[in-house]
Amino acid sequence: MGIERRSNAGARPGPGVGPAGTATMRAAVQHRYGPPSGLECSDVERPLPGPGDVLVQVGAASVHPGDYFVMTGEPYVARLAFGLRRPRHGIPGRDLAGVVAAVGSDVTAFGIGDKVFGWNTAGALAEYACVPADNLVSVPADVSVTDAAATPTSGMTALQALRDIAKVRPGQAVLVTGASGGVGSFAVQIAKAFGAEVTGVCSTGNIDLVRSLGADHVVDYTRTDFTHTEKRYDVILDNVEAQPLAAVRRVLTPTGTLIPNSGHGSRWLGPIGRIVRARVLSGFTRQQLKPFLSLGKRQDLLALTDLLTTGQVTPVIACTFPLHEAADALRHVGAGHTRGKVVITI
Results as ranks from 00 to 15, higher is better:
residue 32 R to F: 06
residue 32 R to H: 15
residue 33 Y to K: 05
residue 33 Y to E: 07
residue 34 G to N: 08
residue 36 P to R: 09
residue 37 S to R: 14
residue 38 G to H: 13
residue 39 L to A: 04
residue 39 L to P: 12
residue 40 E to H: 15
residue 41 C to E: 14
residue 41 C to P: 10
residue 43 D to Y: 12
residue 45 E to R: 05
residue 46 R to L: 11
residue 46 R to K: 15
residue 47 P to E: 01
residue 50 G to W: 11
residue 51 P to M: 10
residue 51 P to K: 01
residue 53 D to Y: 11
residue 53 D to F: 12
residue 54 V to G: 00
residue 54 V to D: 00
residue 54 V to H: 03
residue 58 V to E: 05
residue 59 G to A: 11
residue 60 A to F: 15
residue 61 A to L: 12
residue 61 A to I: 13
residue 65 P to A: 12
residue 66 G to M: 10
residue 66 G to A: 12
residue 69 F to D: 08
residue 71 M to L: 10
residue 72 T to I: 08
residue 73 G to Q: 11
residue 74 E to M: 13
residue 75 P to K: 06
residue 76 Y to N: 12
residue 77 V to K: 11
residue 78 A to V: 12
residue 79 R to M: 02
residue 81 A to K: 10
residue 82 F to C: 03
residue 83 G to N: 10
residue 83 G to E: 07
residue 84 L to N: 07
residue 84 L to I: 14
residue 85 R to Y: 15
residue 87 P to E: 03
residue 92 P to H: 01
residue 93 G to R: 02
residue 96 L to D: 02
residue 98 G to Y: 03
residue 98 G to T: 03
residue 99 V to S: 01
residue 99 V to G: 00
residue 100 V to L: 09
residue 100 V to F: 04
residue 101 A to N: 05
residue 103 V to A: 05
residue 105 S to Q: 12
residue 105 S to W: 00
residue 106 D to T: 04
residue 106 D to A: 14
residue 107 V to D: 08
residue 109 A to Q: 08
residue 110 F to P: 08
residue 110 F to A: 06
residue 111 G to V: 13
residue 111 G to F: 01
residue 114 D to P: 09
residue 114 D to Q: 02
residue 115 K to N: 10
residue 115 K to S: 13
residue 118 G to Q: 12
residue 119 W to F: 04
residue 119 W to Y: 03
residue 120 N to A: 15
residue 121 T to H: 05
residue 121 T to C: 00
residue 122 A to L: 00
residue 122 A to K: 01
residue 123 G to N: 00
residue 125 L to N: 07
residue 125 L to T: 00
residue 126 A to V: 02
residue 126 A to R: 06
residue 127 E to Q: 11
residue 128 Y to F: 15
residue 128 Y to N: 07
residue 130 C to F: 01
residue 130 C to H: 00
residue 130 C to Q: 01
residue 131 V to K: 04
residue 131 V to N: 05
residue 133 A to T: 07
residue 134 D to F: 06
residue 135 N to P: 00
residue 135 N to F: 03
residue 136 L to R: 01
residue 136 L to A: 05
residue 137 V to P: 02
residue 140 P to T: 06
residue 141 A to F: 04
residue 141 A to K: 13
residue 142 D to H: 14
residue 143 V to M: 11
residue 143 V to G: 10
residue 143 V to R: 05
residue 146 T to C: 06
residue 146 T to M: 09
residue 146 T to E: 14
residue 147 D to V: 09
residue 147 D to G: 03
residue 148 A to S: 05
residue 148 A to F: 06
residue 149 A to H: 09
residue 149 A to K: 10
residue 150 A to F: 15
residue 151 T to S: 08
residue 153 T to E: 08
